[in-house]
Simulated assay, not measured.
Amino acid sequence: MSRSIVIDRPGEHRLIEGEVTVPGPGEVLVEVAAAGICMSDREVYDGHRDPGYVRYPLVPGHEWSGTVAAVGPGVDPALVGRRTVAEGFRACGTCERCRCGETSLCTGGYAETGFTEPGAFADCVTVPARLLHLLEDDADLRAAALLEPAAVVAAAVRAGRPSPGERIAVVGAGTLGLLAVQLLAASTPAELVVIDPRASRGEQARRFGAVEALTPDEARSAYGHFDLVVETAGAPTTAAESCLLARRGGRVVLTGMFAPGAAGIDPVHLSLSQLEVRSVFGAPSSAWSDAVRAFRLGLIDPAPLITHEFPLERFAEAIALVGGGDPATGKVLLRP
């Protein structure tokens, strides 16, 4: 038997038990070791996610790691027992965007594990084998559950193209921001500054490789200073502020998910400063490969970001912590 959390509709969930799913052709069944809860999951639970990007009733869980327990027809049986993570987007692989390698922008119709397809807030999850990214046999599966946000960060770093000796700012010191600090530190910047109002997060960013941590008020003195700005907060003003932090001709990458009504980017400043602005939505396959490789090499270590762990039975407590405003709350995991 296998247990899973089902959100029937916003604000209503239950823990159910049923038969273990038999993987179909091209699929694998993965025993979940750990699954992270992020703000997107909280939005699903509260009913704030765009209706086009969620399908109720739903088993959530898009940040996870585990071990392959069974394979379906046409899948290499040698995968059984392998530690793994997997991409969330169920890209079609045949549309123009997929053929160009932009699998997170698939035009074949949105489908994603944990949002439209059953996710990993469960004992087991079934995914297409083609989406797996295998880990080392001794990989820390607890830490590996954060490779999904790490892949988003890897996509942002690819878009930002950091070069050695550059001045780099990371706006926001949540999970994405702190992972970005670790990965950007590997590019040997001249300066790596984190901007966040929470002093405790600034201290953690320094431990991860930042040379300085500033509050948003303090950062105003650094407007126009940075070669590259990576925005990770998704707060109402951070897109506009990130553009002000970049030097003329600089680069800005937006990774935060902004709510309607967020402050817009000044087009006059944009044109006069000749900024290059990119955004990231999820992570293509190439960014997943980058993140897994960085994890294997020890360039990123997500484990220190984890502050709370709960069994499935305590899902209500776990989801309440996410977005609750307590600065002591980092990444919250479910451990089936």
Rank of each mutant, 00 (worst) to 15 (best):
G66T: 03
G88R: 10
C98Q: 07
C38P: 07
D76T: 07
C92H: 05
E96M: 14
P118W: 12
E87H: 10
T107L: 15
R42W: 06
G52P: 03
T113A: 03
V127H: 04
F115E: 11
M39W: 14
V44Q: 06
S104M: 06
G81R: 12
P60L: 06
Y110W: 15
M39N: 10
L79V: 08
M39P: 00
T94Q: 04
H62D: 11
D76H: 05
V71G: 00
G88D: 09
F115V: 03
H48R: 15
R82F: 13
G108L: 09
P51M: 03
G88E: 09
M39K: 05
G72C: 10
D41I: 09
R49C: 01
R97S: 14
T94I: 05
E112T: 00
T126L: 01
G101C: 01
P57R: 11
I37F: 07
T126M: 09
F121L: 14
H48P: 01
G93R: 04
M39E: 13
G101H: 01
Y53N: 08
E63T: 04
T67E: 03
G47K: 07
V54L: 05
G47F: 12
V80M: 07
D46L: 13
A91P: 00
G66I: 05
E112H: 06
P73Q: 14
G88P: 03
L58D: 11
T116S: 02
P51K: 03
T113V: 04
V75P: 01
C38E: 13
G119Q: 02
E117C: 01
E43M: 11
T107Q: 15
F121R: 02
A120N: 09
F89Y: 12
Y45A: 12
E102L: 13
G66H: 05
G72F: 13
V54I: 14
G81M: 14
Y56H: 07
G52K: 12
M39Y: 12
G93W: 08
R42E: 09
L105W: 13
S40G: 15
W64M: 07
P128Y: 10
A69W: 01
G74I: 07
W64D: 03
T126A: 05
G47T: 06
S104K: 03
R83V: 07
G66W: 01
P51C: 06
S65G: 11
E112R: 02
V85W: 09
T126S: 05
G109Q: 02
H62A: 09
G108I: 11
E117S: 09
V44I: 15
Y53T: 13
P73E: 15
G74D: 09
P77F: 12
E96T: 13
D50V: 08
W64F: 15
P60Y: 02
D123S: 15
T113L: 09
T107P: 04
S65M: 13
D41F: 12
D123G: 15
P77T: 06
E63V: 04
P57C: 11
H62P: 09
Y110D: 04
T67G: 01
R82M: 09
V85P: 04
R83T: 03
Y110I: 08
T84R: 01
G61P: 07
A122D: 05
A120Q: 06
S40H: 14
C100G: 02
T107N: 13
S104N: 15
H48G: 10
R49D: 02
T67A: 03
L79F: 13
P77Q: 10
A69H: 06
D76A: 07
L79H: 09
